[in-house]
């Protein structure tokens, strides 16, 4: 038995990646939940909006790199984030003005807005292909690792190493900072409170003099900011592939719904639940079990529940179970 090595192994292949992925999902799900809480529809375009944010970040990053501006050891793309956020906010506000506002004024049922958002998804997807093309882009310049496997092994004398990527630490830090800021905004500022009031009881908020257009604009600004961040961080952590964001939509919605759609706390918890489930179910436990079991008991097979190709099925299964057992999600959402 070798518990220490087992823990390090598990941390390296499950803990650290899942925390980073969970942070990215939480940021994405927060955007979905905010739009749902205020505008009361599921925005299927959110994945592509994230992709758009990442694309703007990459374009600006190229300009910065060409000019020789960088913030080594941190990746240059971080410097491009403010521009990406502004660009994404501009996109969502323009889309709202051109598409969603029309249905809002008409007081269309949520399903119409959902279908409209699917259309927006395809248009933005096409726009991205048109601008940056369908090929993969590497984003992670600067120092890629904060801790390398070999350095960890040498420092601790263990068989197993723990690697921590810069992008993973940035993801977690950014997620924590965003969540703190968002909660401060929603709970302490007058505008934030008016958004929660609007989400809770629209008619009464109007009677209290809350301006609905302002609330909607703020919801889009927040959703755009979160989307740009989540998209860029995901691209930084993996590789920026314009098409993966369509697939990312499923775990993001699963996160929001598992936590209770409309509830910001739920979105964060849901993000980590989905991330850990995906990584844990697709991890091969052979070596891990070898460390913690008596030598002869170690499994012969990989001890992997599902192949990594099936990781999206995990979100789906969790989603189905939650909808069957507790349709409101963990934190019974609906209001911010």
């Amino acid at each position: 038995m070798d518990v220490l090595n087992a823990i390090v192994l598990f941390g390296n292949f499950v803990g650290v990646p899942a925390i980073a992925y969970g942070s990215q999902l939480a940021l994405g799900a927060l955007g979905v939940t905010l739009v749902y809480g205020i505008l009361r529809f599921s925005n299927f375009a959110h994945g592509e909006i994230m992709s758009f944010g990442a694309m703007v970040a990459i374009l600006v990053m190229w300009v910065l790199q060409a000019a020789g501006i960088g913030i080594s050891p941190l990746p240059t793309v971080l410097l491009a984030l403010p521009a990406a956020i502004v660009g994404t906010i501009a996109l969502v506000l323009i889309v709202d003005r051109l598409v969603f506002r029309y249905y809002r004024v008409k007081r269309s049922p949520p399903v119409i807005l959902l279908i409209a958002s699917t259309g927006v998804m395809f248009v933005v997807n096409g726009l991205i292909r048109f601008i940056i093309g369908p090929t993969d882009q590497r984003v992670d310049d600067g120092t890629r690792f904060i801790m390398k496997v070999r350095a960890f092994k040498e420092a601790t004398g263990l068989n197993e190493g723990l690697a921590i990527k810069t992008s993973q630490v940035i993801s977690l830090t950014a997620a924590v900072a965003c969540v703190v800021l968002l909660f401060w905004f929603l709970n302490k500022t007058k505008t934030g409170k008016s958004m929660r009031a609007y989400s809770d009881n629209e008619d009464l908020a109007l009677l209290s003099g809350v301006n609905p257009d302002r609330v909607v604009t703020f919801a889009w600004i927040l959703a755009g900011t979160l989307a740009a961040l989540a998209g860029t961080l995901y691209g930084l952590d993996k590789v920026y592939k314009p098409f993966t964001y369509l697939q990312l939509l499923l775990p993001i919605f699963a996160s929001a719904i598992v936590g209770g759609i409309g509830s910001p706390v739920g979105a964060i918890v849901g993000g980590f639940v989905i991330a850990f489930s995906e990584v844990m179910v697709t991890y091969a436990y052979k070596k891990f079990l070898g460390y913690i079991l008596v030598a002869d008991w170690a499994p012969v097979g990989l001890a992997q529940f599902l192949g990594t190709d099936y990781k999206f099925a995990v979100s789906f299964m969790i989603l189905v179970v939650v909808l069957l057992v507790r349709p409101t999600g963990i934190f019974a959402g609906k209001t911010l």
Partner: peptide
């Protein structure tokens, strides 16, 4: 109003 006259989550 007669009903829904408070913000229940606040």
């Amino acid at each position: 109003p007669q009903t829904n006259n408070v913000f229940t989550s606040m």
